[in-house]
Design a protein around this nucleic acid. Sequence first.
DNA 1: GTCCAGGATCGGA
DNA 2: TCCGATCATGGA
Length: 290
Amino acid sequence: MKFEHIDSNIIVSDLTCFDLGLTLDCGQAFRWQQKGASCWHGVAHGRALDICQEEGLLIFKNTSPEDFENVWKVYFDLERDYEALCRAFVLQDAGLRAAVEAYPGIRLLRQEPWEALCSFIISQNNNIPRIKGIIERLCQNFGDHLGGHDYAFPSAQSLAGLTVQDLAPLRAGFRAKYIIDAAQKVAGGQVLLENLKNTESSLARTELQKIKGVGPKVADCALLYGLGHTAIVPEDVWVKRILAEDYPEGFPQVEEDARGIAQQYLFHWKRMGRTESAKLKMAKGKGQIT
DNA sequence: GTCCAGGATCGGA
DNA sequence: TCCGATCATGGA
């Protein structure tokens, strides 16, 4: 990976196997908005970012070399060799081959532990557009204002003193009490998120499940997306469908630490397949397609 | 109006 | 231990 600093932009070249839009909109992160054909705007680690992908270049706008090095290079997982990873996926399994060929360039974002945990608590029995709305209202109501329309994700400390009534504007439903319990246990030190990065996965999962509203699936999402446990495959409704319909013998054999990344490819592939066939069905029902 | 959503909890068998 | 009802809200 090569990058250079021009004006206030960081331009990354020589980057293969990276699709910005797929990575930001494949159901792993909920705070990125598309701006135009190839640009996105979002907030992570308390920093707003505009980022574009054009002609093989990745352009980080209005950021500093320090933030690029310390924050964004890690967040976008730029130093992992996805080319080798995807090459292996394609050789190892027919389903993964189809997924990688249909949607190449998905990367696993390395999100902040608390944001990932909180986001996937909100995700339970919920749909992605509505998850995004609740998280946006959470940030607008309780996150630090960063200027413009941007708000940081609120810290566990800042939420720990709130009540279910305080969270009413989020319209999060039964999940509000879970958000508060998570904030209290994280802020109070009963669950030490940072330590769980280096804790064996099943032990870390048990720790996370001390929080009300955190079961195996939400715990696994926190591990995979926020705590760097890339071997974890969270079993949501889509992964259950994948296993039932495509892998009755079990999840495909890939390198241990790549299982969670393989999951992200299969998840998106399955979800898009179902969405497309549903759209087609709708169109046929309305007589738009014969 | 109905079904369902990147599930977890609770009570009863 | 297992199973079904229930949870709040709104997208499709």
